Measured scan of single mutants.
Amino acid sequence: QEELVKAFKALLKEEKFSSQGEIVAALQEQGFDNINQSKVSRMLTKFGAVRTRNAKMEMVYCLPAELGV
């Protein structure tokens, strides 16, 4: 569980995922086979993730800066 949270936060820091499906796929690539869209959705809510525009003006998920991840 701890490893999943770390990987999840690291992915969001990249600010390149525009959908929950993309986050699920990226986590599965890292070996988290039991991850699915509903789990990702709950984690996004739990950590207060928001959708914002990145440098390329794409809408992407990211974590609020005050979490200091």
Score class of each variant (00 low, 15 high):
residue 26 A to K: 08
residue 69 V to F: 05
residue 13 K to P: 01
residue 37 Q to D: 14
residue 35 I to G: 01
residue 1 Q to I: 11
residue 36 N to G: 07
residue 46 K to P: 00
residue 17 F to V: 04
residue 1 Q to P: 10
residue 47 F to R: 01
residue 57 M to H: 14
residue 34 N to W: 15
residue 44 L to H: 01
residue 34 N to F: 15
residue 11 L to Y: 03
residue 32 F to V: 02
residue 40 V to N: 00
residue 55 A to R: 07
residue 1 Q to G: 12
residue 61 Y to H: 02
residue 22 E to Q: 15
residue 10 A to T: 08
residue 41 S to D: 14
residue 34 N to V: 05
residue 52 T to L: 12
residue 30 Q to M: 12
residue 10 A to G: 10
residue 17 F to T: 04
residue 54 N to E: 02
residue 35 I to K: 00
residue 54 N to C: 03
residue 25 A to Q: 12
residue 35 I to Q: 03
residue 49 A to M: 02
residue 61 Y to S: 01
residue 13 K to C: 05
residue 10 A to F: 08
residue 21 G to A: 14
residue 54 N to M: 02
residue 66 E to D: 12
residue 44 L to K: 00
residue 59 M to Q: 05
residue 50 V to S: 08
residue 58 E to W: 03
residue 51 R to D: 02
residue 3 E to T: 10
residue 31 G to S: 02
residue 52 T to A: 14
residue 67 L to A: 15
residue 12 L to Q: 00
residue 20 Q to G: 08
residue 6 K to F: 10
residue 5 V to G: 07
residue 59 M to A: 04
residue 6 K to V: 11
residue 39 K to Y: 09
residue 6 K to M: 10
residue 65 A to G: 13
residue 50 V to N: 05
residue 20 Q to N: 08
residue 9 K to H: 11
residue 64 P to F: 04
residue 1 Q to V: 11
residue 30 Q to R: 09
residue 35 I to P: 01
residue 44 L to A: 02
residue 33 D to T: 15
residue 31 G to P: 00
residue 29 E to G: 12
residue 30 Q to P: 02
residue 57 M to T: 04
residue 58 E to K: 08
residue 44 L to R: 00
residue 15 E to D: 04
residue 67 L to T: 15
residue 47 F to P: 00
residue 12 L to G: 00
residue 30 Q to V: 08
residue 34 N to D: 13
residue 58 E to N: 06
residue 42 R to V: 12
residue 43 M to N: 01
residue 59 M to L: 14
residue 61 Y to I: 04
residue 15 E to K: 07
residue 25 A to C: 06
residue 39 K to R: 12
residue 8 F to G: 00
residue 58 E to A: 05
residue 54 N to R: 02
residue 33 D to P: 14
residue 23 I to W: 01
residue 57 M to I: 03
residue 64 P to V: 05
residue 21 G to P: 10
residue 40 V to K: 00
residue 22 E to M: 09
residue 27 L to S: 00
residue 18 S to D: 04
residue 66 E to I: 06
residue 50 V to M: 09
residue 34 N to Y: 13
residue 8 F to K: 00
residue 39 K to G: 10
residue 54 N to Q: 02
residue 3 E to V: 10
residue 12 L to Y: 01
residue 25 A to W: 09
residue 5 V to A: 10
residue 50 V to H: 07
residue 24 V to A: 09
residue 8 F to A: 01
residue 4 L to K: 00
residue 21 G to M: 14
residue 3 E to F: 10
residue 13 K to I: 10
residue 26 A to G: 03
residue 42 R to S: 14
